[in-house]
Design a protein around this nucleic acid. Sequence first.
DNA 1: TATATTTGCAACCGAAAGGTTTCATAAATT
DNA 2: AATTTATGAAACCTTTCGGTTGCAAATATA
Lengths: 106, 106
Amino acid sequence: MRRDVFQAIADPTRRAIIALIAFQAMTPNAIAEHFDSSRQAVSKHLRILTECQLVEQEQSGREIYYTLNAKKMKEIDKWLEQFRLLWENRFSQLDKVLHTLKTQKK
Amino acid sequence: MRRDVFQAIADPTRRAIIALIAFQAMTPNAIAEHFDSSRQAVSKHLRILTECQLVEQEQSGREIYYTLNAKKMKEIDKWLEQFRLLWENRFSQLDKVLHTLKTQKK
DNA sequence: TATATTTGCAACCGAAAGGTTTCATAAATT
DNA sequence: AATTTATGAAACCTTTCGGTTGCAAATATA
């Protein structure tokens, strides 16, 4: 069951969990309180997030604190990187081509 | 069947399609040549990408050219924005807190 | 020690995903 | 006009997803 970061963030509940624990570690019980579904369902989501290393565990007695692994989030950003020039229209592909043609003429 | 950008990029084939047409519009047939699965399977992926507006169609006779809608890609980037400070360790949450404490002391 | 709390795991279930094959339609070619 | 080409849509199938309920294990508390 190989997990993928992109597959992990596909689910809206999991994205909400990520946002929830981003700035403060939380236990499964505390997280589950923010959602309508059962604690076990949230636990399943946490398992998936853990498997792809988006989230890490920190045991404290019988409680487990879940924290976001920001480094892993960077992976998504890295994939997006190749397209960033496209939506920053200042350097759109067309502009680039035109720029190249212009500078070659000189 | 409401489609979501995050769900759309969850599939590796769809991510490959996005990368493929990012800098050059392509027809379904041309796209399908790059994959092992059937043309119809690719067509299904294109449908999903179109439904969430990640991709746009441009008819030319009986051919349809698919282009990436870079603006929509920005949506993913926008969601990522809230976490960017976390992985740019120069401004990690901890650093921010320490900085605040430090400046308050002065 | 007995009980309550926190958590993960397994089994089950309906819905959705992703693939295939078959068919219909429209445009280009002969 | 007949045929080929490009494409999308429908029907079907297997696997995965996301949820549930029930149970077991470990730690904290009475």
